[in-house]
Computed example of a mutant assay.
Amino acid sequence: MTTSIPRIQRQYYRNGPPHRGGADVSFADLVKIFAFNSIHIGRWVTAAEQQLAANLFFDAFCDLQQLLQVPPQVISLNGSLALTFGIGGQPGVCAHYQPQGRILALAKNAGGGSLAHEWFHAFDHYIAGKMFGDNATRNQFSSRCWLQHKTIIPHYFNALLDDAYKKLFLSADGKGSSDFFNHCRSLDAAQNRLYLAMPEEMAARTFEKMLQRQNLKNSFLVSGTLKSKAAELGVYPDDTLCSEVGALWLEYFRLLGQGLRYKANGNSREDG
């Protein structure tokens, strides 16, 4: 009888630069560098597991920062995002994002590879108020608001997100739903559920596949979008759609990072 290795103790592939210089970091370092609102660790997480997790989270968030070309505060969504590791959890659930409290939670033994997906949920929730103002209720995602035809606040950044959602959810002529949306609905119908076709889930799966297709790889940040049973079922968009939507998102974050760095350098221009 073989004993499975706890997921946090597995070897995660990454080819990015040595952000830590080979040294260990702590969760306190993550709070200090990325300005997370708070980080809470489960009582059953051992000191060794906590150290492993801190290093994995740090490398993953640094890689995400590099992939998106943004300053550290974007990763914590301007200090609004809280993290939990090894607290609660449900059987079969690797990770989840909780809009109430803005909490990104990863299970101790099942969270690896899910971080990018859940981070995008957090971004999708955070940006709803920026994109739709008071038209978005407190716990709504921007992707869902968009599908509900809520009024978008005019801004170049919002226009990029608007274009991304058009490609993701609508047919080429804009008069019907996209092939990807229809496929997700058919998969849901076969299971008598509504999950894969939820707009926030479609957006998060597209984001994580877009990240995994980049040259910088980190399997703790994202994995399973290219080769997995789920990928074979088509729960992720095809490469063409992923590239088109991903290009808009990458441009969004690149310009956001550029604007934030401009302001940080002492410039007060508000249109960046």
Rank of each mutant, 00 (worst) to 15 (best):
T84R: 15
T84Q: 15
Y97D: 09
A122H: 03
A110D: 14
T84M: 08
G113V: 00
H96L: 06
S114D: 08
G111Q: 08
P91N: 12
A122I: 05
L106G: 07
E118R: 08
G113S: 02
V93E: 13
H125E: 10
G89S: 10
G113K: 04
S114Q: 10
A116C: 03
A95L: 03
A122M: 03
S114V: 00
L106V: 04
N109R: 06
G86P: 07
L115R: 07
P91T: 09
W119M: 06
A122K: 02
N109H: 12
F85T: 05
R102D: 09
A122R: 07
H121D: 11
L104C: 01
I103S: 05
A107K: 06
G88E: 13
K108P: 07
H125G: 09
S114L: 01
F120L: 11
V93W: 12
F123C: 13
P99V: 00
H96P: 12
W119F: 12
A116G: 06
W119K: 05
Q98G: 11
Y126K: 13
A110K: 10
R102Y: 00
A107N: 14
G86C: 06
H96E: 14
L106F: 13
L104R: 00
G89K: 06
P99T: 07
A95D: 07
C94Y: 12
L104D: 01
F85L: 00
V93K: 12
A122C: 08
K108F: 00
Y126S: 15
P91C: 03
P91G: 04
Q100G: 07
L106H: 12
F85Y: 15
G111F: 14
A116S: 13
I87K: 12
Q98P: 06
G101F: 02
L104E: 01
Y97E: 06
E118T: 09
G92T: 04
A95T: 03
G101Q: 14
